[in-house]
Each structure stands twice: as C-alpha cells, then as structure tokens.
C-alpha cells in the first residue's frame, strides 16, 4: 500500500480527498501539507528515509507562500537527494489550458487532475505504476 502526499491549502479538499482514499483503501498512509514550502521541508528532512517518502504526490497550484510552480522549481534541485522516485499529479480547479501546458514542462508531473476528483480517477491514478 502506497504512501500518498496531499499538498493543498484547501482544507475541504484535504478532507474530501482523504476520505475518498481511505474509504477505497488506496493508501497506507496520507501526508498532509498546507503549502509547497511545508512539503519541501518534509521531503528534504526525510530524503534518506525511503520508507517515509511518498509514492504519489498530489500538488495544488494555488497556495500561499510556495505555490505549485515554485514547489516544482525547488523540487528539481531536491530530487537528486531523494532515495525514492515518485510521480507528481497536479491537482487544480483550474481549467486554464496554459496551466496544463506549463505542467507538462516538468518531467516529474505525470498527469493533470481537475477538481473535483472522483473516486474512479483516484483509483486509476494510485493503481498506475
């Protein structure tokens, strides 16, 4: 069972997503981060601890302090230190195609997910490897 990280300042999204993942028993553990900065701090701290690093990371675009884009920029530098590779899914309420195109420029971003996220979509994403 994978570890899933949710990076989103929207507490209601955190709630609904967690509930969906738990109900479908899709994850062993769920890590919650309110913004990109918190997530970066956690990853850097546990870079060597493979068992604490997530297998999937859901990343919101609009967040205070360090938003999704800023996270991706810093993540590029951090990536080499990490002892585990994992896919990142951009999650946003945005339906702006420019955001989607921009997301494709980052190799780590495996997919772009538009809110609201359904259980079917989550299952599909978390089962793909």
């Amino acid at each position: 069972m994978p570890i899933v990280a949710l990076v989103d300042d929207d507490s209601i999204f955190q709630f609904t997503a967690t509930r969906l993942i738990e109900s479908a028993k899709l994850a062993q553990n769920i890590l919650h981060f309110e913004n990109g900065n918190e997530a970066l701090i956690y990853l850097e701290k546990n870079a060597a601890n493979t068992e604490l690093l997530p297998d999937f990371l859901f990343l919101d675009i609009n967040m205070p302090i360090v938003d999704g884009w800023m996270f991706l920029e810093d993540f590029e530098k951090l990536k080499t230190k990490l002892t585990k590779e994992f896919p990142i899914y951009m999650v946003s309420s945005s339906i702006d195609p420019r955001d989607m195109n921009r997301a494709r420029e980052f190799a780590e971003v495996k997919d772009f997910v538009i809110k609201p996220v359904t259980i079917e979509r989550l299952t599909e994403l978390l089962n793909s490897n």
Binding site: D10, I12, F13, T16, R19, I61, N62, S92, S93, S94, I95, D96, D99, K115, P116, V117
Partner: peptide, 22 residues
C-alpha cells in the same frame, strides 16, 4: 480574471460538489 474565475470560483464549487456527494 480568467485565472480568478478558473481557480477561485471553481475551487469552492468543486468542494461543494464533493461534499454533496458525500
């Protein structure tokens, strides 16, 4: 504005949809 509409308005709406489903 597009961004505002795209993000800021859609964001609570999507939450509302999820919550209604729950």
């Amino acid at each position: 504005f597009t961004q505002i509409v795209s993000h800021n308005l859609r964001s609570p709406v999507s939450n509302i949809l999820s919550l209604l489903d729950f």
